[in-house]
Design a binder for these strands. Structure first.
Lengths: 356, 356
DNA sequence: TCTAGCACTCTCGTACGTTGAGTGCCAAGC
DNA sequence: GCTTGGCACTCAACGTACGAGAGTGCTAGA
């Protein structure tokens, strides 16, 4: 692509800024006034014609102003946008929201909520898949009623999972707690994948000469691990209703599809997973997401980490016309704050160096 | 109120049925055709005039048909409606959805989802408040990292709550597990309220001669209980987007308020609590809920129980124009199924006798 | 290369007439 | 005394027409 003249760049930049602020096509007259350079509307029109030819802007109809195309937004974001860093007061206010005494689930709910509140858009947080990567920490068996035993599994990162399994006979509390102790001593610290594997092996060679306690623990645990729903991941969505304030999303059918997408989650999760790979903030504009319900929306995401490992993604969804220069740092900071709130390892809870 | 003639009743009934089916004001001509009786439109008009005078129907404008008022719906539901019981095939299909090996949380999510799917409206489930009424069953302490301990509290009904507390020094696993054992032996089976009270007392007279294990257990538990968020209750909402299909809720501002109400939850919870007291299905029509965002909506609720004790409410929200004769049994059955899935006490999981 | 001017285009809001559905009322009929 | 057909009236909805305003493209001149 031929590179733009500085004048064209300034023009495109102001046009998009105006359009983001006002939400309406901007014409040559207003543009010539708000652009720093001293050019007449006519000149502006000429430049706009060039930009239109390049596919960066378009007019909704003959005598409206121009609006940015997706390509225009893309150029704007990649080369023209000056991200305004949040002032430190803002940051520390956000930081306060992350009470480190909350458990991971709560922290993520908090992050999602915060994203939607601060950006006035819909906030998203992909929960980490509790998978082979996380380490087993603790198990516990609690008899709830005849034949029903609650199995609690805690992973190293503080996530708690619980399943109810049914058994033929009842057990004494001491029996259960001894089984749990055995299990904890044996497997604590191992990766979940390893534990599962080990359980399969143990079950295969289960024999009468196996100690009763051992047998009990292994049987129950493997049943709990087996029935563990293949949830893999989950998505938290907050502030969907913020999106109803944008006139460009006023079409009920489109809105419906969008909200259904929030509820279905599956496709969104897949999409959000893409941004896990790259570090830093990633932006999908309109059809770039290749997901029809998001055709008129933009997605700003950033991965978050636990102890340096990327475990999930968070971000916001809004119309393509959003104040990127504000939203980007919001998503960025939230990802950092969440990461540091979740990471309570030896390295402590510092913000790592910026990396957008 | 003067009682209606049978003819007026039939007319009101068919009018409302038609309106529910079509969603548009119904006029004298169509009514005279669809009503079983053989009356001319003119006669129908006379009767309609009477009904209008009684405040049971009204016309949106001079030359539209009539639509039911809230009062009209009320009479319809209270005296004219024949609830169609679900056929048993339907019921057993629903019953299958409630896998009793799920934990309470999952069961309720399932119920909410099911309500919205089957009724094509928004489904609601109020989670039981984990309060004084529920019995303490089990506690566990797990050290996650330096100075951070995960406290897991299990109640008799199988709900799992967890908090992270921070401590000054680190503990051995055996130390923690001994503390948990002590605590479990002492308090298992007692009501949470009693446990809290006992903890306060223990803390007050905590002294050096208290056993170390005891002291540790009491300190940690009381910190966990103290920081327990005053969540009291929570609300699950499913299928909100179903409401976008109803043209009468097409106004974006109203819809926005409604969706905000779903997110805020607080007021809705308060409202839903009202229906806890009475057993059976309860219906709020439009402004009867005395909650502005629900002005154009109806709420159909029923309480659900654990082992005979009412612990929460579930239901659906839709426009006032909903197929009550279908929705009422759906809510009713779902409440029963959820109750029986949650009740795994001695009495087993039977459906109790109908009580609407 | 920029600018002023001008004719052109298109949306939006308003006004207006037409259509059709439905009503209220009245007088005739059972 | 109910019921019914007839009739004038009302009102939303729809389509057309038209002016105002905003913005454009093009051209000629600085």
């Amino acid at each position: 692509m031929t590179t733009l003249s500085t004048r064209a760049e300034v023009l495109l930049k102001t046009l998009i800024e105006r359009y983001i602020a006002e939400g309406q096509p901007v014409g040559s007259r207003t543009l010539s006034r708000h652009m720093g350079l001293d050019l007449s509307p006519a000149t502006v029109r000429n430049v706009m014609a060039d930009l239109e030819e390049l596919g960066l802007i378009r007019s909704p109809h003959t005598s409206a102003g121009r609006v940015p195309t997706e390509k225009g937004y893309r150029v704007f974001i990649d080369t023209l946008l000056k991200v305004k860093p949040l002032d430190s007061g803002e940051v520390s206010k956000l930081r306060c929201e992350f009470d480190p005494s909350h458990d991971p689930q709560q922290l993520m709910e908090c992050a999602s909520h915060m994203l939607s509140e601060v950006s006035r858009l819909a906030g998203l947080v992909v929960l980490p898949r509790r998978d082979e990567a996380s380490a087993f920490r603790h198990i516990d068996f609690v008899q709830l009623s005849k034949g029903r035993i609650l199995v609690i599994i805690v992973t190293q990162d503080g996530q708690v999972h619980n399943r109810v399994i049914t058994t033929e006979r009842d057990y004494e509390d001491t029996e259960l707690s001894r089984a749990a102790n055995y299990f904890n001593d044996t497997y604590s610290g191992k990766l979940l994948a390893e534990v599962k594997q080990a359980l399969v092996a143990e079950m295969r060679e289960a024999s009468d000469d196996m100690q009763r306690v051992m047998q009990l623990a292994v049987t129950m645990a493997s049943r709990a691990f087996a029935t563990e729903r293949a949830e893999s991941e989950d998505l938290l969505v907050s502030g969907e209703s913020n999106l109803m304030d944008f006139p460009e999303l006023g079409d009920m059918r489109k809105l419906r599809r969008l909200f259904d997408a929030f509820n279905t989650k599956r496709d969104l999760l897949q999409l959000l997973d893409q941004s896990v790979r790259a570090g830093g903030v990633k932006i999908f504009i309109g059809s770039e997401s290749r997901y029809e319900p998001l055709a008129d929306c933009s997605l700003v995401t950033a991965p978050y980490t636990i102890d340096g490992q990327i475990v999930g993604t968070l971000g916001v969804i809004g119309p393509t016309r959003i104040a990127y220069e504000h939203v980007i740092p919001i998503v960025d900071i939230t990802a950092r704050l969440l990461s540091s709130a979740l990471s309570h390892g030896e390295r402590g809870g510092r913000l790592e160096s910026p990396g957008h």
